[in-house]
Amino acid sequence: MANGQKTWCIANPLSHDSALAANIEYACSLLDCRWIQPDGPCFEPDTLLQHASYVMNMYYQAYGRHLSDCDFKNTGLVSLTDPSYGNCTFESGGALAEEEPSETWCVAKPGTSDELLQQDIDFACNHVDCSPTHVGGACFYPTNLINHASYAMNLCYQTTDRKNSSCDFRGTGLLVSVDPSYGNCSY
């Protein structure tokens, strides 16, 4: 990344709940996780993906902002777009000393409402083939809106010459520098 480029760590929308729970437990054993507690500004939406993304970013920021600090056994993605929403602020220190990413992907922002994720799916699937997210498709699992929206949003992004504006989706998309593909689900 260019000197001064701010980056964040988020959980891959394809991550299994057990991995997300383990990431939360690990990061919270080392850091103060009160922001994802019921009275904290990052508690809602109360999902493992959102909570894991927040604490994984805390860890990533605290331990040096290197790609390895966001790996979490291949469940982390380095975001080039701020995943903050509402009163939930994802901190970033910037100045990552690594090179500019050669490839980027688009995924849905953790914390996006189901209603907006469905709108993203509807929009994207009117422009690209979303059959891999249907029953029997390589990207059907995990069967949740954020996974399916991420796949569809990325396919739109990739087919529009990877323009930053093609990953905006009314503020619900994030550019990431790590391939979110998992198993047979290829982004």
Results as ranks from 00 to 15, higher is better:
E91H: 08
C42L: 00
E98Y: 01
P110F: 08
N184M: 11
A97D: 15
T133K: 10
C130A: 02
G173S: 05
G94F: 03
F43W: 12
S15M: 11
G93H: 01
N147K: 08
G136Y: 01
H127M: 11
N147E: 09
D32V: 07
A149D: 10
N87P: 13
V135G: 00
D17N: 12
N154I: 08
F140M: 06
T133N: 06
R170A: 12
P101C: 04
D69T: 05
P142T: 03
R162Q: 11
L80V: 11
D114A: 11
H134K: 10
A52W: 02
C139S: 09
G111A: 02
R34G: 14
V178S: 08
H148I: 03
K6C: 08
S79K: 12
C167S: 00
C139L: 00
H127F: 10
D168N: 14
N23H: 01
N126R: 14
Q118A: 01
L145A: 12
I36L: 00
Y141D: 14
F43V: 02
A19D: 12
S150T: 01
A138Y: 05
N12G: 11
R34Y: 08
F140T: 04
C28S: 09
A95S: 13
L67F: 09
A152K: 06
S165R: 14
Y59S: 05
D69C: 04
L174W: 13
L174R: 00
M58R: 06
A2M: 13
Y187E: 08
G137Y: 03
A21T: 09
H66E: 15
C156T: 14
E91G: 05
P132I: 13
E103H: 11
C125G: 03
G173P: 02
E91P: 15
T89Q: 13
C156D: 09
N126E: 15
A22H: 04
Q5S: 12
L155E: 15
N74M: 04
V178M: 04
L30T: 05
H127L: 15
G183R: 14
L49P: 13
V78I: 07
G136E: 05
T7I: 13
C88T: 02
F43Y: 12
F169L: 09
H127K: 08
G111S: 02
L49I: 15
A11N: 07
L96N: 14
I36Q: 10
E115D: 01
M56C: 01
C88G: 02
D129S: 12
L117F: 05
C156E: 00
A95Q: 13
S79I: 11
L96Q: 14
D120N: 15
A11G: 01
F43H: 08
A21S: 10
R162D: 00
T160K: 15
Q5N: 12
A97W: 13
L49F: 09
E103N: 05
A108V: 06
T81D: 03
C9A: 02
T159H: 14
F140D: 06
Y182E: 14
L145D: 02
C9T: 00
C28H: 10
T159P: 00
M58K: 08
A124D: 09
Q119Y: 07
I146Y: 09
S18Q: 13
V135L: 12
P83W: 03
C125Q: 11
Y141I: 04
Y187R: 14
Y157M: 02
V178W: 04
E103G: 00
A138P: 04
H51I: 05
C70V: 08
H16K: 13
A149S: 15
